[in-house]
Design a protein around this nucleic acid. Structure first.
Lengths: 217, 217
DNA sequence: ATCTGATTTGGCACCAGGTGTCAGAATTCT
DNA sequence: AGAATTCTGACACCTGGTGCCAAATCAGAT
């Protein structure tokens, strides 16, 4: 939803002037500066300067300063969508959702630090938290359209929308909790939050990852 | 979280120069212009001009253009907080939450149109949806701190955060659904969404307000 | 070697949102 | 009348973001 460029040229040499940077390069520079200087203290001129391009060029790769943070996130929505489409139809809906979300959030160890700083920035900087809604929207729709298809309801129905939104909300709680605890496993938090959701939050102590290695007490 | 002014003077004549406008006046003018012209096409200069004040003065009442939309919402978080504190301790947690939310959202008929246009603007204009996160935060904390107090857990615990966020998510789904259907009752949607949440979304057809007057089919 | 078309870049002007600063206006109290 | 208080208006300034157009850099055809 954020970048307007999508070359995906196989490798064959294209025609015009070659790009002097890339979305990925700007993303890495931006992320680093956000962590070092803070989001507000990082001007777009600075990011562009460190990439060796002009300010105007930055806006040809991202349509906003916050966009660099969501580059990766947006890409993974498609992944979630695919996992849901391939899920076992015999599973209860909420279990299918839980498994798909867990599968979509299996990150390689080398990608974890970057993910962590992204989530921390989103949770820390108010302006970044603000931009989140637009990107979460596609995530929610991936869930609610799956729910609609499984139940035969309209994607705009209250039930489908509620499942989509509450699922995202539970995952966000898990993400934020994970960032606070540097040692724990992300999927454990996601699993716990989604199990609580699927059981209507009836038992406050279902398999809380923060409560020793044991399960309920 | 938005306004920095909070006079609340009893009525006794204060000391200096009297204000030439009020937050409420700017709110009404802004809301009207947002509906008439659209959010992006409404400049702050225009709002200030119609209120007969300068642009600089507008920013003494609200710290952003979007702030005028959240004036009322922010005030109601305190109300929700109070209702939760007064709730019956014998009720299951999720039922107490549901009843408090329903009570907090009982609007007078005369206030409904304004509420409706606010929600519609939030759902329509991307930039407004973005600002929502900051204001929803206090709402979520009202829920999660109540849950923490009832369960003896930390307000930052995964369970408390997950309940707060998912409750808000369910209510937002109900709000948005309500805006699409001009005739229905808001509390009916809220009740249905929160019941679904408390039952872990196990039954897709629990008392859906959109499914005739009957309950399940 | 040169021309042509395609693609990206850089610079410029411009608008709107938002902030810091300070002088001045309008009120009440003494 | 004068002092203290509170709000306002004007100005300068920064940053994010957009429209526009000329220039740069490539591949391929002439």
């Amino acid at each position: 939803m954020n970048e307007q460029v999508a070359p995906a040229e196989p490798a064959g040499s294209r025609r015009g002037r070659p790009p002097s940077t890339s979305a990925r390069e700007l993303e890495l520079i931006g992320l680093r500066l956000f962590v070092e200087l803070g989001f507000d203290n990082t001007t777009i001129d600075r990011i562009a300067a460190e990439a060796g391009v002009s300010r105007r060029t930055f806006f040809r790769y991202f349509d906003s300063k916050a966009g660099v943070l969501w580059n990766a996130f947006d890409a993974e929505v498609a992944n979630l969508h695919r996992l849901l489409a391939e899920s076992d139809e015999r599973l209860p809906i909420m279990q299918a959702v839980r498994l798909a979300v867990l599968a979509a959030n299996h990150y390689r160890a080398e990608d974890v630090p970057e993910l962590r700083s992204r989530i921390e920035l989103i949770g820390t900087v108010p302006e970044l938290a603000a931009t989140a809604a637009m990107h979460y929207d596609a995530w929610e729709r991936a869930i609610s359209s799956f729910v609609a298809q499984r139940t035969g309801k309209d994607p705009q129905s209250l039930y489908a929308m509620a499942v989509g939104r509450t699922t995202l909300a539970a995952c966000r709680a898990a993400f934020d909790r994970w960032v606070l605890r540097a040692d724990a496993d992300l999927t454990a938090y996601l699993n716990s939050a989604l199990n609580s959701l699927a059981s209507g939050f009836s038992d406050p102590n279902v398999d809380d990852p923060d409560l020793s290695p044991a399960t309920s007490r």
